[in-house]
């Protein structure tokens, strides 16, 4: 057994991450603590930076130099990192940022929440950019998805965010390491763009600053094309009972676990419930809704927020009448009983 936070650290190390910089904040402290112990043993670099800003900019620098780099924090700390994330996206660099969300806004509390969905999926910093966003719902999946986050970050030269809540970070569950994992190791990828010393070759330039008229627009157009490619190729979700469902729960992370309990209880009573669990939050898995959006199926979006993923579901389904919502925030977690009650009220 291992905590979610430790599983994420372990997954990052197994993915080949050898540079970590962070600044402490609950409920993710087990992650840097684990890194501080293991990283030196593996010959990597662990830095407890003087601030969140310093940490994300160290990751920026390390990534530009070709390292597989990562930082982690929790909600207010992630807000502080937004400028750096925007720079990393603008400079087209890979990096993994872990957000173990807590209740907000402001300093908030340390209870689980999913209130940073907008920030993660809609570019939390300035500029037109996107981070890949993956949302695990078990400790096992946290381990797997951080490996995938590194792979995708490298593949697309784009920052990737692993978004989980404090409950998943703190809880312990069994972890099985699959030696036949299908995720290729990004360590093997050659980084021809990296700043590795230009002796004998033309220098590489990593930047997000373009002075000449039209150049920045060109960068933006290239980025948009790149995001379309990611949207087309990297949608990920788990679907349960989508074929016969009258009502489909839409939930990610911890809320998806709780929704599954509600689903199975309702199914035992003969109520035809399905589940869409987005695994990637950006790109949002639109195709999960494709088969159903024309028919009369209802959707119930369940979040630990007052309706953030809800907006993506509405943009996908387009018919407001089909979509219902249940949410709590600030550390409140909708229970299976609340979901069951809401489903029965809708039908």
């Amino acid at each position: 057994m291992i905590t979610g936070n430790e599983a994420i650290a372990e997954g990052a190390l197994d993915a080949g991450c050898r540079f970590y910089a962070g600044y402490p904040i609950t409920p993710q402290n087990e992650l840097p603590a684990y890194m501080s112990r293991r990283m030196p043993q593996l010959g990597g670099i662990f830095i407890q930076a003087e601030s969140e800003l310093a940490a994300i900019n160290m990751v920026f620098g390390a990534s530009a130099a070709g390292a597989l780099a990562m930082t982690s924090s929790s909600s207010p700390g992630i807000s502080l990192k937004q400028e750096g994330i925007s720079y990393i996206a603008g400079a087209r660099l890979p990096a993994v940022i872990v957000n173990i969300m807590r209740g907000g806004p402001g300093l908030g509390n340390i209870w689980p929440a999913q209130s940073d969905y907008f920030q993660a999926t809609k570019s939390g910093g300035h500029g037109d950019y996107h981070c890949l966003v993956l949302a695990p719902s078990t400790v096992q999946e946290a381990y797997e998805l951080v490996k995938l986050a590194f792979y995708l970050a490298e593949k697309y030269r784009n920052p990737a965010i692993l978004l989980a809540d404090g409950m998943l970070g703190q809880m312990m569950e069994p972890l099985v390491k699959n030696p036949k994992s299908k995720i290729p190791n990004p360590k093997d990828r050659r980084k021809e763009w990296a700043l590795t010393g230009c002796k004998g070759r033309a220098p590489n330039i990593v930047k997000s600053f373009y002075m000449r008229e039209g150049d920045l627009e060109k960068l933006n157009l290239a980025l948009q094309k790149h995001y379309q490619l990611i949207q087309a190729k990297e949608e990920r979700y788990e679907g349960l009972f989508l074929k016969d469902a009258q009502i489909i729960l839409v939930a990610y992370g911890t809320m998806a676990r709780i929704s599954k309990v509600a689903l199975h209880t309702l199914r035992q009573e003969g109520i035809k419930v399905g589940l869409i669990r987005p695994i990637a939050l950006w790109p949002f898995p639109k195709k999960a809704f494709a088969a159903k959006s024309s028919s009369k199926v209802r959707y119930l979006v369940v979040e630990m927020s007052y309706g953030q993923m809800l907006e993506d579901v509405l943009l996908t389904v387009r018919d407001k009448e089909q979509v219902e919502f249940l949410g709590r925030a600030g550390g409140g977690v909708p229970s299976a009983e609340e979901i069951i009650k809401k489903v029965k009220k809708i039908l």
């Binding site: 057994m1 609950t26 409920p27 340390i110 703190q170 809880m171 312990m172 569950e173």
Partner: peptide, 19 residues
């Protein structure tokens, strides 16, 4: 929880944490 895991059960463990 570890003992239950060794007996092939599903287990979760959640601490109280914070201030």
């Amino acid at each position: 929880a570890e003992a239950a895991m060794l007996e092939n059960r599903f287990v979760t463990w959640l601490p109280s944490y914070g201030a």
